[in-house]
Nucleic acid binder design. Sequence first.
DNA 1: ACGCATACCATCTGTTTCGGACGGTATGGG
DNA 2: CCCATACCGTCCGAAACAGATGGTATGCGT
Lengths: 189, 189
Amino acid sequence: MLVADRLSPTSYVVLGTIALRGPSTSYDLKRAVGRSIGYFWHFPHAQLYSEPQRLAELGLLEAETEPDGRRRRTYRLTDQGLRELKAWLAEPTPEHFQMRDIAELKLFFNEVGEPGDVERLAREQIAAHRERIAVYEDMQARYTDLDAVAKRMITLRLGLEMEHAALRFWSALLEEVGAQAIPDAASGS
Amino acid sequence: MLVADRLSPTSYVVLGTIALRGPSTSYDLKRAVGRSIGYFWHFPHAQLYSEPQRLAELGLLEAETEPDGRRRRTYRLTDQGLRELKAWLAEPTPEHFQMRDIAELKLFFNEVGEPGDVERLAREQIAAHRERIAVYEDMQARYTDLDAVAKRMITLRLGLEMEHAALRFWSALLEEVGAQAIPDAASGS
DNA sequence: ACGCATACCATCTGTTTCGGACGGTATGGG
DNA sequence: CCCATACCGTCCGAAACAGATGGTATGCGT
């Protein structure tokens, strides 16, 4: 069986993050992921401790353990690890993205609820998306100048597009259900 | 402990679908979900067999088993089930939506790959999103006239907004990496 | 210099979700 | 009436998940 068959998206997050950052401990990964990928691909930190071990067993990472004290393990990419990562980057991506949006679920079932529910939902969503947009714009402002990370910022634009799309939708919906929109605090974005 | 604490999004998908469709078997749910919610909230059919049983134990559904043959169970909403569903619809929605997009992941790690990778990725994504947009528009065309389901079609608009946002992003990216966009085969559909 | 409080860091555990295999049941054509 | 085929429901091993737990460093007061 090919090694690649045993790899999940989680695996590539680990491989990729180490490729970008250099040798890292699980805790390093946890923080790095929390600041970047975590925004668009949720996952629990516990996997950042177990997954590198698996990858080390498969020969894609190389572990070095502190001899004493906390006995942290630092992982670095092996040649094979880099090869697998590059192969993945080069191969087709057949899956469509998946969304998990509780709000969308509630909207779908809105017939069952009370008339005011949708309006409340829309207002909440508008606020939430504005907030997230502000976060992204802030990140963008702070990091796009730094050459080292500029390339990684591209995904932020996708995130922003998505957020704006959602914001547009909920704003339009709010107007339809009969209220005027909240004044746009985040305009000009 | 409140019943609501034991309910997951999956639970509400089941409750909600039964509320909209009336009494249903697991297989009914499976098909109904596959045609609707499945597009924006993935989940495996096995849960549509186990989850209703749990909900029946909690008193939110009522099961009736065919006495012979396939012994299918038909579930119907109890008063309490309807109450829980409505309560959920009325309560705030604190979680932000989650995305899982392999393409976005690959894009984030693009520095590690070859120059051509991003272009290939973009082309694929453009094709995939156009295809999905066509599916949604087709559904919209077929169902918005039917009063019975018109209200449920609202979520389609959100789906379309998202798809268009993604399409815009990948198209812009493709131009930036130096190729002209593919002629728009799906326009006007 | 020592002990203690606090913040870091790593791992473990029980539970849910997941995807797919498997096996039973109906149906209609020969 | 039998068999092929399409339905339908359940089960299972593997992975993902959330959060608790416990060990390790750091620095502060004394």
